[in-house]
């Protein structure tokens, strides 16, 4: 465990600090590998086999196979890295955003929320006032 930080109080938010980096390094570097077409082809041929070539934890591999976007963050993933899997699947940031919201939000709900000005900041600044899942930290 690391020291307590003032940003730990922000709800539903996973800050990529040193501890997070250590936890997610290999998961994120697997995602990074998808920048190359030859690796995308290998991943497409057999996702499970390709994941074995990275020293990730089994939990991380399962989260990738299940496209569990929130779990990936909890296991050290960073959205700029994990989004490469979503791009591989042809998904948009709204798909991933809806699923990470963890409240049975559909993509359409998420799109509509954005059209209406986004998720309100009021009520979502700190864990004490927020009704979001507080699974981070």
């Amino acid at each position: 465990m690391r020291d307590i930080r003032d940003y730990d109080d922000i709800p539903g938010t996973y800050i990529m600090d040193g501890a997070h980096n250590r936890k997610g390094y290999h998961l994120n570097m697997f995602c990074m590998s998808l920048n190359k077409q030859e690796n995308r082809d290998r991943f497409a041929a057999s996702e499970a086999d390709y994941l074995q070539s990275f020293p990730m934890t089994e939990e991380q591999r399962e989260a990738v196979l299940n496209r569990d976007w929130l779990r990936m963050l909890q296991l050290g993933g960073n959205i700029y890295y994990t989004f490469k899997i979503a791009a591989f699947d042809g998904l948009t940031m709204q798909h991933v955003g809806a699923e990470m919201s963890g409240s049975n939000m559909t993509v359409e709900d998420f799109r509509q929320m954005m059209l209406e000005g986004g998720r309100p900041i009021d009520g979502n600044r700190s864990k004490s006032e927020s009704k979001l899942g507080n699974q981070n930290g």
């Binding site: 922000i10 709800p11 539903g12 938010t13 996973y14 929130l70 963050l73 960073n78 959205i79 700029y80 989004f83 940031m93 991933v96 955003g97 990470m100 919201s101 963890g102 409240s103 998420f110 929320m113 954005m114 000005g117 986004g118 998720r119 309100p120 900041i121 979502n124 927020s130 979001l132 899942g133 507080n134 699974q135 981070n136």
Partner: peptide, 17 residues
């Protein structure tokens, strides 16, 4: 400008900020 791509708080926007 304001945006959050990740986590349960994804989609947060703060136009006054």
């Amino acid at each position: 400008m304001s945006h959050q791509l990740q986590g349960e708080r994804a989609g947060v926007i703060n136009q006054p900020f």
